[in-house]
Design a protein around this nucleic acid. Structure first.
Lengths: 85, 85
DNA sequence: TTCGGATTATCCCAAAAAAGGATATTTCTT
DNA sequence: AAGAAATATCCTTTTTTGGGATAATCCGAA
């Protein structure tokens, strides 16, 4: 098992959350507040400087109004198929 | 956002992985080997002493022959409904 | 019950990662 | 270009992790 953080996969995963935030039109500040965390927390995980565990992921996705399960499914589905059709 | 580790939720989540391992009849040792990690790694996350990030969770579930998405869905579904109907 | 092996949990502690306020940098809007 | 808004980085103190070694627990057999 490779390290999760700093991997291309991890970036894809986080990208989903970033996209969700943009889609929701929410700022890091606002999201951070919802989560009861400093803005740097959001900046860090979005920047791939801090990893998110499953619960955090679910919590954040929910805070963004996104469906955590769908995001994970999307992530899993596109796993390892960088090439193929 | 509360700390994920040591939370009741986290235990439920991990419980899903432990159950999957038992169901698969795989030992910590064997799983660890598949993951390229020492047995203590498995013992620790199962014991709630180390957290798992999303990718690790997916990797482990897959190694156990379980569907990561289903596990997450199951987790999310039973979230916060300790009481109600 | 006692023995032995299998399985899982805990120790240790150096190394790595995280917290989070403060500050710097980048980006937008006008 | 200026000012504000948004995001990224710094810095220092805590907290967490890695993983081999060892301890504790479990379990079936005799």
């Amino acid at each position: 098992m490779q390290k999760s953080l700093r991997s291309a996969e991890y970036h894809r995963l986080i990208g989903l959350l970033v996209a969700a935030r943009h889609k929701a039109g929410i700022r890091q500040q606002a999201l951070a507040k919802k989560l009861g965390k400093p803005q740097s927390f959001v900046a860090k995980y979005e920047g791939g400087e801090r990893r998110l565990d499953v619960i955090e992921f679910v919590t954040i996705a929910s805070a963004l109004g996104a469906d955590p399960v769908k995001l994970i499914r999307q992530f899993v589905r596109t796993k390892g198929q960088t090439k193929s059709t």
